[in-house]
Amino acid sequence: MGVFEQLATFIERIPGLLLDSGELGIIYAIMALGVFISFRTLNTPDLTVDGSFALGAAFSAVLAVNGHPVFGLIIAFLAGSAAGCITSLINVRMGINPLLASILVMLGLYSVNLRVMGKQPNIPINKPAETIYSLFKADSLAEYGELVLSIIILSAILISLYLFLKTRFGFVLRATGDNENMVRASGVNTDITKLIGLALANGLTALSGGMIAQFQRFSDVQMGTGMVVIGLSSVIIGEVVFGTRPLFRRLIAVVLGSVLYRFIISIAYEVGLEASDLKLVSAVIVGIALSAPKIGGGLAKLKSRFSTGEKAGEQDA
């Protein structure tokens, strides 16, 4: 097969790839919004995410198997929030550095998740057990049913989150990551803002994990590994590609960043990389995305050096 035929088949596959990355990207976007809250809004490196994602998946799968898929997602959100609260309390009350506190909770959650899953490393949600997706299935939507349901849930979360960040409490939450000092000087207990921020971040993460488990009808105790990196890369890709202002655009950018990330990953599959290579691909993407401002600045410097160099040359002549 010639290069052109290969290219042609690849282009034919793009709509399918977009649908796949859209379906996954939209669900992972909910987790990315959580990571946005902890890393950007609160300026806290929170690794609890890895544990709370799998925690949400575990609760969601167990309850779906027992016939409560919707309730499973609610419990997933609440359990994730509780995990976030614990990280915050360990940080604030016990005076342990936030990064370390989150690592401790992530580590502990691994055992908790196994308990939730009845000491099995994975749980399939076999038919005829219902998931939110099978409940929603309508003939008119054909293959887009899953995507539509995920978009509805994401939109509801996106709009509520936007409105929440625009409230009086939302303002002080956003300022806490910027300048804790100023928030305390404004008469606000920053311990509380941090607690609620991390609870919300991990609640969203666990909800996302719960949705993924029901979407793929499968929960695995390992499925949270590397979630922080995926969330962070979605946030950063969104910032670099789609901008950061105003706030609503910023939130949309996180969602689009998540979809774009999934698309890049599916391209990586297409060019022949295997599932086992995925973590390396993720790490490289995040590395590139994180260094984008620096590389951009370096290029600008190089450019100005060249142009001033030319001018100096002209003057010499």
Binding site: T167, R168, G170, F171, V172, R174, A175, V183, S186, G187
Partner: peptide
Amino acid sequence: ENLAIAWYKGRSRNLKPG
């Protein structure tokens, strides 16, 4: 937004518009 944070000093930081 900075001014708003100072403006609601001493009042409840609830879910009313910031």
